[in-house]
């Protein structure tokens, strides 16, 4: 099962996409920022397949060596969503067996990939709230993304701060 980027998300990143001058290196860059925005706010959205585009089934290029860490962060988010402490062995075991598939090129089971994609879809909506307009240059986007991410994570209500205690 592949990673899927929403059509709207793809359009939103058009000016800093891989086809633009001084933009992203791959389409997965855009997907990654959507996903991070999604897990930051815990926002998931299911989209019809027709409203998304298939990317790849693996972590490409710069993400190849970072796949395991991204999947770990995804697992942390899912456990927080479930209200599970990381030391609850049975629940952690259950989440791992449900969402992970070692032989998959993405390390994700089909169900895991579905949930992963939902964060990316939800994340696009988060980005449209964070940014008044779609990004026109990469440097501005990167700086503003980090600023908005910090702003979001510093909110008292953000569950990352609440849910990571050991």
């Amino acid at each position: 099962m592949p990673f899927r980027l929403s059509n709207d998300g793809e359009k939103w990143f058009k000016d800093i996409s891989k086809s633009s001058k001084n933009g992203f290196q791959t389409d997965f860059d855009a997907y990654y920022f959507c996903f991070i925005a999604g897990i930051t706010c815990g926002q998931k959205k299911t989209l019809p397949v027709s409203e998304t585009r298939e990317l790849v089934e693996y972590f490409p290029d710069r993400f190849r060596t970072r796949g395991k860490l991204i999947v770990s962060l995804f697992l942390c988010r899912e456990l927080i969503e479930l209200g599970v402490q990381f030391n609850e062995k049975k629940a952690v075991h259950s989440a791992i067996t449900k969402l992970i598939k070692p032989e998959s090129p993405s390390y994700l089971s089909d169900e895991g990939m579905r949930e992963f994609n939902k964060y990316a879809n939800g994340g696009y909506e988060v980005l449209t709230e964070w940014f008044a307009d779609r990004p026109r240059s990469l440097d501005t986007f990167l700086r503003l993304f980090k600023a908005k991410l910090d702003q979001e994570l510093n909110k008292e209500s953000n569950s990352w701060a609440l849910g990571i205690a050991v």
Partner: peptide
Amino acid sequence: MADCYSLSDLFSTALYNFKVS
């Protein structure tokens, strides 16, 4: 920024705690 743990110390702490747990 592709290093997700660099984006926030909350993320790196979560990963660390996950590993410790």
